[in-house]
């Protein structure tokens, strides 16, 4: 039983990161109906930028660990958000009126481009974050030993998700985003600047992805240029699992995917873990064709 709960916390910690990345997928999808395959590489960019800023500016030394990390996160968020907006302008906006899959291919091209840009700039070798930033303490809760950093990462993910949820539900801009997601033409008629909404979505989504990259770098300590491909696919799966376009869905999907993986590895087979996760996904989609929290949309008639 102790092992079960240990695996549950393992799964939730991994799932928290999936969920954070999945938010970027789901936000962009909600408004543009575009699967942004470059999102995983924006996540990688966040991890690398975080490393560069961390080692070159020495923020935590000057401002103390907490303020330093906060500033670092804001910087990374800003840079990656800017890249995301540029990407939207260059690679997606010209394709907005074309068949949906064209934009998907452009996104795949952007993904290859970004990934190789990172490789050419930083080299192909694995890069390592400094080790002494976060405390290495484990907390004992009822016989379970959970590293403090894992809890921190999880809490930060939850806070960011909560903030985003409130932003979408409670603010004027959030309302505009929701309106544009439902019907762009109608939103335009209601005086909503849809282009601006899309820009904001492409600032927030990649920004969150960048922070997720920073968190992964800080916690796991190791980054390489292909990491976005693995995390991107997992996060996309999570977004679909929860019902793509739906923000609570991305959170739920991410956490569930993490837990399924941990349990599959624990009780069936480690080598088959990913296959098990996909099988569960397929079964869930057969039962609920639009994901766990996805709304059932009636087909156009």
């Amino acid at each position: 039983m102790e092992e079960f709960f240990q695996q549950l916390t393992n799964g939730l910690a991994v799932g928290g990161i999936y969920a954070l990345i999945a938010l970027g997928y789901t936000m962009v999808y909600g408004v543009l109906k575009l699967i942004n395959f470059a999102h995983g590489d924006l996540f990688t960019l966040g991890a690398y930028l975080g490393l560069s800023l961390l080692t070159s500016l020495g923020l935590s030394g000057r401002l103390g660990p907490l303020a330093g990390l906060l500033l670092l996160a804001l910087l990374v968020m800003g840079f990656v958000a800017l890249t995301g907006a540029l990407l939207e302008r260059a690679a997606y906006r010209p394709l907005r009126q074309s068949p949906r899959l064209s934009a998907v291919v452009s996104a795949l091209g952007a993904s290859i481009f970004l990934q190789n840009t990172i490789m050419l700039l930083y080299g192909a070798r694995i890069h390592v974050y400094p080790q002494d930033i976060l405390p290495k303490v484990a907390i004992d809760i009822g016989g379970l030993s959970i590293p403090l950093v894992r809890i921190l990462v999880f809490v930060v993910s939850l806070l960011l998700m909560g903030a985003l949820y409130l932003f979408i539900q409670r603010t004027r801009l959030g309302t505009a985003i929701r309106a544009a997601a439902i019907d762009q033409a109608a939103a335009r008629l209601m005086g909503i600047n849809v282009d601006q909404v899309i820009l904001i979505v492409f600032l927030i989504g990649p920004g969150l992805g960048g922070v997720a990259g920073l968190l992964v770098g800080l916690y796991y300590g190791q980054v390489n240029f292909t990491m976005g491909w693995v995390y991107g696919l997992k996060a996309f799966t999570a977004a679909i699992l929860g019902g793509i376009g739906n923000i609570p869905g991305a959170m739920v999907g991410g956490l569930i995917l993490g837990v399924i993986e941990a349990m599959g590895a624990a009780y069936i087979s480690v080598a088959w873990k990913d296959a098990i996760a996909f099988m569960v996904l397929i079964v869930i989609l057969i039962v609920r064709p639009t994901g766990i929290l996805g709304e059932r949309v009636a087909d156009k008639i």
Binding site: E3, Q6, A13, V230, A266, V270
Partner: peptide
């Protein structure tokens, strides 16, 4: 006797199982 997936970052699930 089992295999992990290369390219991943979190191996706590495998370690927990190994430990058991």
């Amino acid at each position: 006797f089992d295999a992990l997936t290369p390219g991943e970052r979190d191996f706590t699930a495998i370690l927990t199982k190994l430990k058991a």
